[in-house]
Computed example of a mutant assay.
Amino acid sequence: MSRQRSMETILADEFVSIGELVRLTDSRYSTLKYYTEEGMLPFEQAEENLTRRYRRVETVALILRIRTMKSQGMSVPQMKEALLQR
């Protein structure tokens, strides 16, 4: 198990892990994993250890957008459709 990176390091990096997204957005790991599996959170696969890496700025903004849509009562299929129109 790797050591947690400091928030300063996370905020300086272009890419973050799903665990770091949990810390940045105060979201649940299972929620972010679900959104990833549904194709709502794009990621890049690091070849060396098959770790999913998310673009920090874009993904945090996307999570906040999904959170807003959810609070407006949108279903997952509706959110996916709205995200495709971006």
Score class of each variant (00 low, 15 high):
residue 64 L to C: 04
residue 49 N to Y: 11
residue 66 I to G: 03
residue 40 M to A: 07
residue 50 L to N: 14
residue 8 E to V: 05
residue 17 S to M: 01
residue 70 K to E: 06
residue 32 L to W: 10
residue 11 L to T: 05
residue 53 R to D: 01
residue 61 A to S: 11
residue 57 V to R: 12
residue 24 L to N: 13
residue 48 E to A: 09
residue 40 M to K: 06
residue 63 I to S: 02
residue 27 S to K: 08
residue 41 L to C: 07
residue 31 T to V: 15
residue 38 E to C: 13
residue 57 V to C: 04
residue 32 L to F: 05
residue 36 T to M: 09
residue 8 E to R: 14
residue 44 E to Q: 10
residue 23 R to F: 05
residue 69 M to R: 12
residue 21 L to Y: 01
residue 41 L to F: 12
residue 30 S to H: 15
residue 9 T to R: 08
residue 20 E to L: 02
residue 42 P to D: 10
residue 20 E to D: 06
residue 39 G to V: 14
residue 56 R to I: 06
residue 44 E to H: 09
residue 18 I to M: 08
residue 72 Q to E: 14
residue 63 I to F: 00
residue 62 L to N: 04
residue 50 L to K: 14
residue 29 Y to D: 03
residue 10 I to V: 13
residue 25 T to Y: 14
residue 42 P to N: 11
residue 36 T to V: 13
residue 33 K to P: 00
residue 60 V to W: 03
residue 29 Y to E: 08
residue 35 Y to K: 08
residue 44 E to P: 00
residue 12 A to D: 11
residue 16 V to P: 04
residue 38 E to V: 13
residue 10 I to N: 07
residue 65 R to K: 11
residue 43 F to H: 13
residue 23 R to P: 00
residue 15 F to G: 00
residue 70 K to A: 04
residue 55 R to M: 10
residue 41 L to R: 09
residue 13 D to F: 01
residue 62 L to G: 02
residue 37 E to V: 13
residue 35 Y to E: 05
residue 69 M to T: 05
residue 49 N to Q: 09
residue 59 T to W: 05
residue 41 L to Q: 11
residue 32 L to K: 07
